[in-house]
C-alpha cells in the first residue's frame, strides 16, 4: 500500500514535469482553431505552423549560428582550460598559487558586475554584430579550469616521468596522456559549457541586432514577443519547439551524461 502511494506520487510528478512539453508539441501540430483543451491527439494533423515559422524567420540560419558559436566555445574551453588545469596541478612555477586564487576569485565574481563594461568593451572593439562578440568573451571558463585541475591531480606522476624520458613535451603529455585518461572530465566540461552558451540569451540580445547573425534562443524570443508571429499560439509554440528539439534529441540519447555532468555544478562553490 505504501509503495502504491509512492508510485502514484512519482507518476503525478512525472506528468507535471513532462505533460506541458507534450501539450506544447501537440498544439504545434494542429490548426489554430483546434487549440484548447487538454487533449494531446490532434483531430487534424498539419505542419502549417512550422511552415509559417520557416517562412517568417531564418530559423535554420539561427540554428547554424548557435551551432557554430557553441562548438567554438566548447572546443576552446576544453583545449585552453585543460592546459591551464595541467599547469596548475602538475607543474611547479612561481605564481602558481596566485593564479589558482585568481581563477577561484573569477568564479565567485557575480557577472552583473562586469556585464555592462564588457558590453562597452566589445562595442569599442568593433565586435557588435559579429560572431566574435558571441564567442571570444566565453573562450575560457574558471569552472572548467578548476574541474580539470582537480581531475588531473589523480593521474599518477609515473606516467609523466616516463613520457618526459621519452622526450615528450608538456603539450604532448596533455594531449596524449592526460586527455585519453580524462574522458569523463572532458564530457562534463563539454556538456556544461555547451548548455551554458547554447541557452544564453541576454548577451546575444545585447550585442547582436542583425537578424542573420542571431542565435536560436534570441531569434525565437524576439519572434514570440514581436509582431511577426501575429499572436498565433501554434506558430509561437512551433518556434519554441524548434528551439527545444535539438537539446531534447541529444538528451534522449545521452541523458545519463547530461544528468551527471550538470549535477557537478554542485561542486561550484
Amino acid at each position: 500500500m505504501k509503495s502504491f502511494w509512492r508510485y502514484a506520487v512519482l507518476v503525478l510528478a512525472t506528468l507535471i514535469f513532462v505533460y506541458p512539453f507534450m501539450w506544447m508539441i501537440s498544439v504545434t501540430l494542429r490548426p489554430e482553431e483546434e487549440i484548447g483543451g487538454f487533449g494531446l491527439w490532434p483531430k487534424t494533423w498539419t505542419l502549417q505552423n512550422y511552415a509559417t515559422v520557416f517562412t517568417k524567420i531564418p530559423i535554420l540560419r539561427a540554428f547554424g549560428n548557435s551551432l557554430l558559436v557553441s562548438l567554438s566555445v566548447v572546443v576552446s574551453v576544453i583545449l585552453f582550460c585543460s592546459l591551464v588545469g595541467y599547469a596548475l596541478s602538475r607543474l611547479q612555477f612561481r605564481g602558481r598559487e596566485a593564479i589558482s586564487n585568481l581563477v577561484i576569485f573569477t568564479m565567485v565574481l557575480p557577472f552583473q558586475l562586469t556585464l555592462i563594461p564588457l558590453y562597452l568593451l566589445v562595442v569599442k572593439l568593433g565586435w557588435a554584430d559579429t560572431y566574435l562578440a558571441l564567442i571570444v568573451p566565453f573562450m575560457m571558463s574558471s569552472f572548467a579550469i578548476l574541474l580539470f585541475r582537480q581531475f588531473f591531480k589523480s593521474i599518477p606522476q609515473d606516467l609523466i616521468d616516463a613520457a618526459r624520458i621519452d622526450g615528450c613535451s608538456d603539450l604532448g603529455i596533455v594531449f596524449r596522456i592526460f586527455w585519453p585518461l580524462s574522458i569523463p572530465a572532458i564530457i562534463t566540461v563539454g556538456i556544461i559549457s555547451f548548455m551554458g552558451i547554447w541557452n544564453e540569451v541576454l548577451w546575444p540580445l545585447m550585442v547582436i541586432h542583425k537578424q542573420e547573425l542571431m542565435v536560436m534562443p534570441q531569434l525565437v524570443t524576439l519572434f514570440a514577443l514581436g509582431g511577426a508571429s501575429e499572436g498565433q499560439l501554434g506558430v509561437q509554440l512551433a518556434a519554441a519547439t524548434l528551439l527545444a528539439l535539438p537539446i531534447l534529441i541529444a538528451y534522449l540519447f545521452f541523458q545519463r551524461y547530461f544528468i551527471e555532468s550538470l549535477a557537478t555544478t554542485g561542486l561550484k562553490e
Binding site: 541557452n199 525565437v220 524570443t221 537539446i247
Partner: peptide, 24 residues
C-alpha cells in the same frame, strides 16, 4: 526513468519554458 523525466525542464532552454508557461 523518473529521474530523467524530472530533469527534462532543466535541459530545455529558459526561453522555451517562459514562452510555454506564458501560454499556460
Amino acid at each position: 526513468f523518473f529521474r530523467a523525466a524530472f530533469f527534462v525542464p532543466v535541459i530545455v532552454s529558459g526561453v522555451v519554458i517562459a514562452i510555454l508557461w506564458d501560454k499556460l
